[in-house]
Design a protein around this nucleic acid. Sequence first.
DNA 1: GGGCGATTGATGCAATTGCATTAATATAGA
DNA 2: TCTATATTAATGCAATTGCATCAATCGCCC
Lengths: 152, 152
Amino acid sequence: MTKTATPSPEAIKAWARLMRVSRQLIEQAEEALKDSGLPPLAWYDVLHELAEAGEGGLRPFQLIERTLFAQYNISRLLARLEADGLVEKLKAADDGRGQTIRISAKGRETRRRMWAVYGRSIMELVGAKLSADELRTVSALLGRLRLPPATD
Amino acid sequence: MTKTATPSPEAIKAWARLMRVSRQLIEQAEEALKDSGLPPLAWYDVLHELAEAGEGGLRPFQLIERTLFAQYNISRLLARLEADGLVEKLKAADDGRGQTIRISAKGRETRRRMWAVYGRSIMELVGAKLSADELRTVSALLGRLRLPPATD
DNA sequence: GGGCGATTGATGCAATTGCATTAATATAGA
DNA sequence: TCTATATTAATGCAATTGCATCAATCGCCC
């Protein structure tokens, strides 16, 4: 008689909390952005990576690695960002297939305005609820849940 | 000169970890279900609530409260579940507007099969990575990030 | 009882996501 | 070099989500 193995109550509880809290927080942050007439979080993620990358820009596949978005998702998101003038697509110098994506001045400005709202959400939703020590503890424990780099 | 208030580095780090890890975990769990030819997590959430509710079933608005899905989302999800024979919609006895949703035998069976896969994901992705104590710590800290019941 | 705002649930339509496939180029190997 | 395979990015089409609105009660208050 084989019994289906079930996770420990502690694991189930932690999982449930993680699922629920992350959804709530995302929802709150998205709502704050929308209320300010700003684009969704996904745009911020991409603009943030591109801003960090600087003038050299990034290739789309690098954005995929950094943001965890699906390939087709990045492809279309970049199309929208370009249509809005927030990024530029440049032919990649050394790879005929690829492009290099660079954030524009308008893109930087949009990112700045998004951060004013997004940062406030983070402060209120997380920074104000736990001490610095507790935040470090959460980060460390969550860090142990990251996937091993190469799952294939 | 007014400087934009920014969250502490600890808050930013914890937020980033939470966003990234939760996305990874969800993706992994969804993939495991799909690989087994099972429906997505959202179905599980609803079937789980309905199974807990027992024969009395639940009203759609109660599912919305418990699962945090949007109203139109629940409405359509229930339509799909009903089309698949996993739930039954009954006219609510005491409220001419409403319905009562009850899980069917097939629904219970589907939930059971989903749990075999989903539970394993939870074990591997969370249970195997942290000790029971650490899991309790995570749960407690994440619990403090929940929203105050009435935000309006 | 009758009217009116609130609640419950569904739905038309636009935007986004997911899936599968495609086109173009790069790279490695015979 | 020439071919086979892998990588990079886009896209057609179906499914899902989000938004706004609607229809049908309900319940309160007069």
